[in-house]
Design a protein around this nucleic acid. Structure first.
Lengths: 187, 187
DNA sequence: GCAAACAAACCGACCATACGGTATGTTTAT
DNA sequence: ATAAACATACCGTATGGTCGGTTTGTTTGC
């Protein structure tokens, strides 16, 4: 333990910092015009150092995306574990997680990444694989058409929120959320 | 005026060709990596010729987007004119227009453009202005929460369709469409 | 216990090139 | 003749990626 404060190179920490700052840069400049130099600067590393951890720009982007996807995954699991009702449990967690992200607006790392998710074939694949896996796992409880509709609507609201310059009004978001949650419990 | 048959330079037609091929290129390569040269080549014009019609890349992209937005606008008007019921008329047309676009999948010019719509602040503004204008015009008939939900769900489905490599199954799309249309007539 | 040897982490300079845009020339229409 | 509609050639720059070297950490041989 005594080695913990004099260690000069901490690759794990640098790697994390690179992931975080890459996400942040993507939010600020848009992922399209994301530059390796900017990420390296933000993380106080040289471009060479960055390319040591991630052999290419694409590799960096994918790593950031996988990282975020993992976080979303954990958050949904957490929400599901707090839900006592079987029927529609996943859908409720999915909707809630998306509203959480939506509330954060453009500052959320998800904003830029999920956008780029559509332009990049590889990221699209990662996402649809994750989604397919989740839907299969919860087919017994969440395959009703009404649940499907609620999830799609959540996506649409999330999208609309990104489109608006300042995001949708907080009050309206709250109303929409309640409306969607009601869909998952009634009938 | 009478010499319409031997005309060798038809700027209007070239301009149209540029718009169409730009949309097509954006679909193939993604708008981020869209290049003036590629568009010019596709339209059998030199880059200089392209820049004569559109003074900058941004101007080209905006023109393409406005063009497509105009087409969507007309399509929605057409659909609305065929709808005898007042209540939810706009929402039905909106949903239908989106499913039309969705059915075309990745080949539709909308795929790439609407994606880029999110990365580009100017395009986002154009879209949200169009949307706001439409919603105001049909506030009397389409402001019910159920309609809002249907529109958001249509957006979500459209998005999900883009995410899947080969798009959603045609059968499922048809079911979803019927489901949404039902939402706009009952209650 | 301590170097030597090896590997990982990182830096700094450089390269190749693709791309947006300009400046200027040439052809076509009115 | 004049202007629009193009073509050709070129430039500046930004950016992804490479490469050789340097520092830091770990293992091995004695």
């Amino acid at each position: 333990m005594s080695k913990a404060h004099k260690r000069e190179k901490q690759p794990e920490q640098v790697r994390r910092s690179l992931l975080d700052h890459a996400a942040r840069c993507a939010v600020d400049e848009g992922l399209g015009s994301l530059t390796l130099q900017a990420v390296a600067d933000a993380a106080s590393v040289t471009k060479g150092g960055l390319l040591h951890h991630f052999p290419s720009k694409q590799a960096l982007i994918e790593a950031v995306f996988e990282d975020l996807l993992g976080k979303l995954d954990m958050e949904i699991d957490r929400l599901m574990s707090e839900d006592a009702i079987d029927r529609g449990r996943f859908t409720r967690a999915y909707v809630d997680a998306f509203f959480q992200v939506t509330r954060d607006g453009a500052e959320s790392p998800w904003a830029a990444l999920s956008i780029s998710c559509m332009t990049d074939a590889r990221l699209r694949q990662l996402w649809s694989e994750w989604m397919r896996d989740r839907l299969e796992r919860h087919a017994q409880t969440d395959s009703h058409p009404a649940f499907k509709l609620a999830r799609y609507a959540a996506d649409g609201i999330w999208l609309a929120n990104l489109m608006e310059a300042d995001g949708l009004p907080a009050k309206e978001l709250a109303e929409l959320r309640d409306h969607l949650q009601n869909l998952t419990i009634q009938e």
